[in-house]
Write a protein that binds this DNA or RNA. Structure first.
Lengths: 238, 238
DNA sequence: CTCGTTAATTTTGTCGACAATAAAGGGTGA
DNA sequence: TCACCCTTTATTGTCGACAAAATTAACGAG
């Protein structure tokens, strides 16, 4: 038991380290902080979808100059979280059915590729660690704590994306579209019966990766994402 | 004959319009112009791969303020053409074998998807126009003018990408990685025997799209890109 | 002569002010 | 009342100057 616990702790620590290496290179500027804060506010819906972003307003709100707000907004545009028009301003993207469809078409393709690559590129150690993460999720699901499932799911997908070892792919997904995916999930209210079935899907994906079976891993990941999308599409209708 | 010529002209005009709609929404700021100029200089190798970008230097060179240069550099970072480190500066990316592999893995997946979607989403008119473009390329190839082949190839791929009708996909490819692809092509010196075989591959892809055969279109596009990559990889070794 | 430390210089990050553009409001004529 | 034009207002684009950080150079100790 103590071994299992220590493994889980190690897993958590490693995960935090991996995220830090990706997200936070040593020097953090004000623009970085503003970017992250504003991004969170948008994903969480504190700044409503479709609303206009006033540079002056934000600069007073976050107590920084307009220049850093502008840089933050520019980066948000790269994430597809806001849309800018010259001499007009920036608006938070709207959550539409078409947008969801297009986003998930791309996500399915990219994460399918990530799973395929991960099946050949991940080290045995990383795969073992992924199994540990799955076990820790099983504990959580069993005890009925669905609250952290969303974060856990993000963690799971992160591992596989990083496991692809393709820096372009990693950047596109992590810096590119993942926050938009989270935005749909958070604002459409993810919870409910899918968490347990999703766990089974995760398990099968990990098995395919453990067996070094790229084609199966890709197919299972694509289906997993298709299911997720259908689930989201339902919520978007209402 | 006059009909064929007029069709070709129409094709060229339409193509220019499509590009303008994508690239240039009416108001163009100085930041836009600087971004485009600097991007071209990087792609063409005027600013060498791997070199450092000095904000002050560029601001004097392009006769704009540092703020404008900074915005341009930020956008170039989104295109994966430069890499920035806080408090240090921006460097033009280096052209490496690993980078080429990773880039083309992503490109194969995304453009494969584009071809698949285009087979179902393009209108009959757009497909007819694509065939016209192919004919015009045939004329060019037959007369031995390989100079414009690179631009023609870019045109061809653009059409299919736009034909996917998936805005996320379009943005990722056109604004995202396509200039980096061009950078590899230009700086490794694309020309030579592959232009004619590439033409045949283009022809087969268009046939698959005309037959509304998504799976075949994707497979042919993926292979076409694989061939291109092998060709580039050879040049990179020398 | 080499290494480590400190001072000088260069470069990036941040700020507030001004200019240019677009949106909002008021007025006139039909 | 509606449409159009002009004026006013607010917002974004651009600039130069200052602050902070990193790089380079100078210096001295071993």
């Amino acid at each position: 038991m103590s071994l299992a616990v220590s493994l889980l702790r190690l897993s958590t620590i490693l995960n935090a380290m991996v995220l830090n290496v990706l997200v936070a290179e040593q020097p953090i500027t004000n623009a970085d902080k503003t970017f992250v804060r504003l991004r969170n506010d948008i994903v969480e819906g504190v700044v409503p979808a479709g609303s206009k972003l006033s540079e002056m307003e934000l600069s007073t709100k976050y107590a920084v100059s307009r220049a850093v707000v502008r840089e933050a907004i520019n980066r948000l545009e790269s994430c597809h979280l806001v849309e800018r028009k010259a001499n007009v301003g920036a608006k938070v993207v709207a959550l539409t059915e078409q947008g969801l469809n297009e986003l998930y078409q791309v996500r399915e393709s990219l994460e399918g590729m990530a799973a395929r690559l991960a099946a050949t590129q991940m080290t045995d150690l990383e795969i073992a660690d992924l199994n540990d993460l799955l076990s820790s999720h099983f504990q959580t699901v069993k005890t009925g704590e669905t609250y952290y499932q969303e974060a856990g799911d993000v963690d799971f997908h992160y591992r596989i994306i990083l496991g692809s070892k393709n820096n372009h792919l990693i950047t596109m997904l992590v810096d590119g579209i993942y926050h938009l995916i989270r935005m749909y999930r958070v604002q459409l209210g993810m919870a409910g019966p899918r968490v347990t079935t999703a766990f089974d899907e995760h398990k099968h994906i990990v098995q395919a990766i453990s067996n070094r079976d790229p084609e199966l891993a890709e197919m299972l990941m694509r289906r997993h994402i298709q299911y997720t999308k259908k689930n989201l599409a339902k919520k978007l209708e209402s």
